[in-house]
Simulated scan of single mutants.
Amino acid sequence: MYKVDLPVDESALRAVERRRAAEAERKNRIFNSRSRVIGVDLRALHKQREEKQERLEMDKQRGMAHDLLRLSLDEMAMQQKKEEEELRRELAQDMVQYRAIHQRAEDSRDADINYGRQAAPDASISVSDSALGPASMQVFLGEGINENEKKRAQKEMNERNLRAQKEEREKQEREQKNRELLTGRELVEKDLRAVQLSALEEECKRAAHIALSHYNQAQAEERMEREQQERLRREGEELEEVRYMVTSDLLTERPEAAKRKTESSAEGPRVLTNRWKGMTPQQISEIHRKREEQCLEKERLREMERQRDVAWDYHLTEQARQQEREENRDKELQREKRIQLDKYNQQLAREQQAHQHYLDKQQYTNRPTVHYFTQFSTSSR
C-alpha cells in the first residue's frame, strides 16, 4: 500500500476556528468585570447615536445646500453662456449687416475679375476679335473694358461715402455741441439757483441775527429794569430795618417789654427770644433747686438698680449650682450604664469566641485548598 496525501478539509478547520473565536469572545464578554459590574451606559450610547444622527442629518443638509448652490451656479453659468452667445450672434449679425451695406463685393475694384464679367472692349481701343488670339496677350479678361466708367463709378461711390461720413461726423458734432450747450445751460441754471439760495440763506441769517439782537437788547433792558427795582426795594428794606432797630426795644434794653408781651400772650407764659435780656436771681435759684432734686432722684434710682442686680446675680448663682448638681447626677448614671454595658459586651465576646472555637476545631475541619477554587469559572458554559 502506498501513502496517499489526501486534501485536508478546510471547511472543518474554519468551523473549528470560528467556534474558538466565538468562545473567546464570549469568555471576554462574560468574564469582563467592568461590563459585568458596571454595565453598559445606555444613556450615553443613545446620546452618541442621536449625535451621530444629527451629524449625518447636518451633513445631508450641507450636501443638499451644496447641490442647490451648484445647480444655481450652473444655471448662472448657462445663463451667462447663453447671453454671451446671444451677444456674439448679435455682433456677427451686425458685422454681416455692416459688410452687406459698406463692404459689398460688387463695389470692389476687382469685382469684374472675381465674378467673371465679360463686357465688350472699350470703344476707344480698336482691337478686332480676330486679332485677339490665345497667345496675343494684349487684352486680358476684365482689363481695359469700361475702365473710365468704372473709375467714375468708383469715384462717385467714394464721394458718396465721404459725403455720408462727413454728414455723419457733422451730425455727431452738432449733437455733441447741443449736449454741451444743454449741459452748460443746466450748470448755469444750477449756479444761478445756488447763488439765489445762498442769497436767500444770507438774508434769512441776517434777519434772524437782527431779530435775535433786538430780543437780546429787550431782555437786557428788562433785566436792568428789574435789577434797578430790586436794588431800590432792597435799599428801602435796609433803611426800614435800620430805622426799626434804632427805635426797637432791643437796643433800648427794656426787659419790661418782653415781660409785658409774655403776660398778654394768649398761648400762656413764654419767652420772646428777640426781647429776652437774661434770667432773674429767683429763676436761677429755682433752676439750682430742681437740679439738686433731679440728682437725688437719680441716686435713688441707681441704688435700686444696684440692689436688683445683686438679687439677680444671687439667683443666677443658685441656678448654676443646681444645674451643676444635676449634671453630676447624670454623669454618675451614665458611668453606671457604661459599666453594665461593658460587662454585657464581655459576656457576648466570650460566647462568640466559644462558638468560633467550636466551628474551627469541631465542625469546619476539612478546609478547601486553592485548587478547589481554581476549578470554577473556567468556561463560559
Rank of each mutant, 00 (worst) to 15 (best):
Val4Cys: 04
Leu6Phe: 08
Arg14Asp: 09
Arg14Ile: 14
Ala21Lys: 02
Glu25Pro: 00
Lys27Met: 07
Arg29Ser: 06
Phe31Arg: 01
Asn32Tyr: 04
Ser33Arg: 14
Gly39Cys: 07
Val40Lys: 06
Lys47Val: 15
Glu51Ser: 12
Arg55Val: 02
Met58Gln: 12
Asp67Met: 08
Arg70Ala: 15
Leu73Glu: 07
Leu73Gly: 03
Glu75Thr: 08
Ala77Pro: 01
Gln79Cys: 04
Glu84Lys: 04
Leu87Asn: 07
Arg88Asn: 06
Arg88Cys: 01
Leu91Asp: 00
Ala92Val: 06
Tyr98Ser: 08
Tyr98Glu: 13
Ala100Ser: 13
Glu106Asp: 05
Ala123Ser: 06
Ile125Arg: 10
Asp129Gln: 12
Ser130Lys: 12
Ser130Leu: 13
Ala131Tyr: 10
Gly133Ser: 05
Ala135Ile: 04
Ala135Tyr: 01
Phe140Pro: 10
Phe140Gln: 09
Glu143Asp: 09
Glu143Gln: 11
Gly144Cys: 03
Asn148Asp: 12
Lys151His: 05
Lys151Cys: 03
Arg152Val: 11
Lys155Gln: 11
Met157Ile: 02
Asn158Gln: 10
Asn158Gly: 08
Arg160Thr: 11
Ala164Phe: 10
Glu168Asp: 06
Arg174Glu: 10
Asn178Glu: 15
Glu180Met: 12
Glu186Asn: 06
Asp191Ile: 03
Leu192Met: 09
Arg193Ala: 15
Ala194Asn: 13
Leu200Asp: 10
Cys204Asp: 04
Leu212Trp: 08
Ser213Asp: 08
His214Trp: 08
Glu225Ser: 03
Arg226Gln: 10
Gln228Thr: 11
Gln228His: 06
Gln228Trp: 00
Met245Trp: 08
Met245Asn: 15
Val246Lys: 15
Thr247Tyr: 08
Thr247Asp: 13
Leu250Gln: 14
Thr252Leu: 12
Glu263Tyr: 03
Ala266Lys: 09
Asn274Ala: 13
Asn274Gly: 06
Lys277Ile: 04
Ile284Leu: 01
Ile287Thr: 12
Ile287Tyr: 14
Glu292Val: 15
Glu292Tyr: 06
Glu293Cys: 05
Cys295Ala: 09
Leu296Thr: 07
Arg300Asp: 00
His315Leu: 04
His315Gln: 14
Thr317Pro: 00
Glu318Ser: 01
Gln319Leu: 12
Gln322Gly: 11
Asp330Ile: 10
Ile339Val: 06
Leu348Val: 12
His355Ile: 00
His355Ala: 04
Leu359Arg: 02
Asp360Cys: 03
Gln362Asn: 07
Asn366Gly: 00
Phe376Leu: 08
Ser380Cys: 01
